[in-house]
Design a protein around this nucleic acid. Structure first.
Lengths: 196, 196
DNA sequence: CGCCCCACTAGACGACCGGTCTAATCGGCC
DNA sequence: GGCCGATTAGACCGGTCGTCTAGTGGGGCG
């Protein structure tokens, strides 16, 4: 069955979102998934290959969610952008580990560990910031946002703010950093002139 | 000798900055440090206690560096702030792992793993942002920065940007995210009005 | 209807993990 | 010189790590 593979990935995602990549052992993962250890190496050639597959499926799923939020019909560009960040805050400060962003959780850990996983994350990040930049341009076109002369740079800055807020939120275990990020986001997108 | 303890901490810092907390085993650490395992448990009651001590010494050392940079005589507030972020970029994108920021490296990993280590990092972060906020106020007083009505909020936003930039820099392995953060920093501190 | 083949399962394996313990050794103080 | 606490040495334990080699069973083809 190929959905044994899917099941391992889904179980792994929640586990890795909580304990990190190095922190999750095969034994724990497979016990949790109810899958015998032998099967694992049938579906993945190594733990790192599993990690890459996990991130691939995360990035893919994220892109779909992103499309659903940022292409929501009937909302102007600004509202769609703010909805995205509201969603970020909700997921990242909620209880559900499987909803947490793996870029936040794994970037630092994986950067020196696995070039393959790093690459998948890096591609995911740049596609997110690219999509954010185009929504900023759409907001300028529909009049909901001022014209920003470098939408890409603004998108990167916003994404950096939210990554940083997520790190701080993990440390403080409250939503204050996200509230701060939300305020900064609103201030940045609504004001004219060179921002980044 | 108490400086065996210091030596273990110094060795551990470089190792942990590269491989992460979970990724560094006692055996590797002690082999690297040339210290027998028996000594480790004389100085630290557990690996987690070692982790807390490591972060304590990091935070303490960081505070000293911070003071040296942010209290540099003969520079106005704005110049001191920018010097701090220049230093961040240099250290974080350089080769020397022992110079890397452990808040960036460990926040996500440690948050769900060790309340003690999380607490040390959280305190460190809030003392940094508090110090940045006061430099922003000093800059307003000496005329090098406009008056920001909420210096604390601006300081948090700047810190978030740099945390996020560091995560992105780890993924992309270039300085582009830091350059972006630097531009955003300059834009944010130099403009009037509510920013965050 | 039977056989065979390959996707999948089962768990043994050696290395090493974090953590503990006892015995040996060191060094300062009387 | 001799003693005692501080430090070092490393064997040892139960457990987990990632890997790998046998085995099994069910679907497809003859």
């Amino acid at each position: 069955m190929t959905d044994t593979r899917q099941h391992i990935l889904a179980t792994g995602r929640a586990l890795v979102a909580r304990r990190g990549y190095t922190g999750v052992g095969l034994s724990e993962l497979l016990r949790e998934a109810g899958v015998p250890k032998g099967s694992f190496y049938h579906f993945f050639k190594s733990k790192e290959a599993f990690g890459c597959a996990l991130l691939d499926s995360f990035v893919e799923g994220y892109a779909e969610d992103l499309a659903a939020t940022l292409d929501a019909p009937g909302l102007n560009g600004r509202a769609r952008l703010m909805a995205y960040f509201e969603g970020w805050r909700t997921r990242q400060s909620g209880e559900a580990y499987e909803a947490r962003c793996l870029v936040v959780k794994l970037s630092a850990e994986v950067a020196e560990l696995s070039p393959g996983m790093t690459e998948v994350l890096a591609r995911g990040v740049s596609s997110i910031t690219a999509r954010l930049a185009s929504v900023i341009r759409e907001g300028a076109a529909d009049g909901s946002l001022p014209a920003h002369d470098d939408a890409s740079a603004l998108a990167v800055t916003l994404y950096q703010i939210w990554l940083g807020a997520s790190l701080m939120g993990a440390l403080s275990r409250d939503t204050i950093p996200y509230d701060s990020a939300m305020a900064a986001t609103a201030a940045l997108i609504d004001r004219k002139g060179p921002t980044a």
